[in-house]
């Protein structure tokens, strides 16, 4: 499969790095891996890091929105970083950027979340 999910715990924050192409075909595995990590319950907040994401379509928007809802229902906060221009355009079209805070990199995202928690 042309997509890898890398998970890293950083205190109360789960960092999820997506590498490759996020489409309908790869979306299911991303959803499963992220939900398993969230349900394990060690993390309160989530940083989705998209630096090595080479392609994304509306199936990716669906997965991201779904995980946002899961984290929010558990009382946490989800943010996104390393958003390239084409992904940003999809966020704008769908209105997702109104509910998801976007940061330049993992460091700024983490420091923001650590202020929150």
């Amino acid at each position: 499969m042309n997509l890898q999910v890398e998970l890293e715990h950083h205190r109360r924050v789960l960092i999820v790095r997506l590498r490759g192409e996020l489409d309908h075909h790869t979306a299911e595995a991303v959803r499963t891996k992220m939900d398993e990590a969230i349900q394990r319950g060690r993390a309160e907040h989530l940083v989705l890091s998209l630096e090595d994401l080479t392609f994304m379509d509306s199936s990716g928007l669906g997965v991201i929105l779904g995980r946002y809802k899961v984290i929010k229902s558990l009382g946490g906060k989800m943010v996104v970083c390393h958003v390239n221009p084409s992904v940003h355009r999809l966020f704008e079209l769908s209105g997702l950027f109104k509910i998801l805070a976007i940061y330049e990199n993992e460091r700024t995202a983490l420091s923001e979340l650590e202020v929150v928690s």
């Binding site: 959803r31 379509d57 509306s58 199936s59 928007l61 669906g62 929105l65 079209l93 769908s94 209105g95």
Partner: peptide, 22 residues
């Protein structure tokens, strides 16, 4: 319609046609 999906249970974003049009 943007954000409309006939299959919400599949976590579809409902943005496919809107993206094609844009």
């Amino acid at each position: 319609q943007p954000l409309y999906t006939s299959k919400p249970e599949l976590e579809r974003s409902g943005m496919g046609f809107t993206i094609m049009e844009n």
